[in-house]
């Protein structure tokens, strides 16, 4: 294995950058900024830190461009997962189970279309159990 050493980056500078960014993250967290500002700042700083680790500690910036392409291309797929999931998470949708679901505690179907035509017993005449509230509202 003919191993060729890269020109070595200054690892201590990377370390100090990571340390400062970590302290800044915790600082911003305790600063009590508006939530959106805080989240955007935190995500940007985390991505910068991750990029520093990949580029210098993992030598990605010093390798051939091909390796960086190999590495970055699957991350596009991750971005597609995120974009695909976002509408479902962000936009509100009715948080109620579909009508035809049988929920625990409600195993008896409310009405059986093909039930035997005998005279209904008093139990069957009783009103069907109400669907339990889903959001923990008053029973």
């Amino acid at each position: 294995m003919a191993a060729a050493a890269h020109k070595e980056p200054n690892y201590m500078n990377v370390f100090w950058a990571l340390l400062v960014l970590t302290l800044a993250e915790v600082g911003i967290f305790y600063l009590g900024l508006p939530k959106v500002v805080m989240i955007v700042c935190l995500i940007v700083m985390a991505l910068v830190k991750a990029g520093l680790v990949a580029a210098y500690f993992m030598h990605l910036a010093l390798e051939k461009r091909t390796l960086a392409l190999i590495v970055v291309s699957p991350l596009v797929l991750s971005a597609i997962i995120i974009i695909g999931l976002t509408p479902d998470s962000v936009f509100s949708y009715p948080r109620k189970p579909p009508e035809h679901w049988v929920l625990p505690g409600q195993e008896e179907p409310a009405s059986e279309p093909n039930a035997e035509p005998s005279a209904p017993s008093p139990e069957q005449v009783a009103p069907p159990a109400q669907a339990p509230p889903v959001d923990g509202g008053p029973a």
Partner: peptide, 23 residues
């Protein structure tokens, strides 16, 4: 100073591919 990512050091490529699947 810039080793080919494919020929001399296949182990490194394999680790990177594993890491990306892990990612």
């Amino acid at each position: 100073a810039q080793p080919s990512p494919l020929s001399p050091n296949w182990g490194k490529i394999m680790m990177w591919l594993f890491l990306m699947s892990d990612a």
